[in-house]
């Protein structure tokens, strides 16, 4: 499953909407339910799904789906040419502790 579809699954779970279709230009504000609390949910759920840990500044810069995809791709390039996007990874402890 590619990055985009896995991310769509994250968004569907966060917004509890199994029909939600995301696009690169989907952004906070354009989607009514995407407020700062939703960004926290998205970030932590994305970290669990992809086994990454974003930095504080990276999280601070997230405004859209495109921002998240860009971050995930940069992590993939840093780690074995994309293996992170294909396999389950140990999830960051804080993200694991998140219960939404």
């Amino acid at each position: 499953m590619n990055t985009f579809y896995r991310l769509q699954s994250v968004f569907r779970n966060v917004f509890n909407d199994p029909t939600l279709r995301i696009s690169s230009d989907l952004a906070a504000g354009a989607y009514e339910d995407w407020d700062s609390v939703a960004t926290v949910h998205i970030v932590l759920a994305t970290e669990v799904e992809f086994g990454v840990r974003f930095t504080t500044d990276e999280v601070g810069g997230i405004r859209s789906v495109a921002d998240i995809v860009r971050l995930l791709e940069s992590y993939a390039q840093r780690r074995d040419g994309g293996a992170i996007l294909a396999a389950a990874r140990p999830t960051p402890a804080a993200a694991q502790a998140y219960e939404g």
Binding site: S36, V37, T39, V40, V43, L44, R53, F54, T56, D57, V59, G60, I62, P92, A93, A94, A97, Y98
Partner: peptide
């Protein structure tokens, strides 16, 4: 306050 950034910092750094 950048809420998501501060939340993320807190739940990783403070533990």
């Amino acid at each position: 306050m950048n809420g998501p950034a501060v939340f993320h910092f807190s739940v990783y750094k403070i533990p």
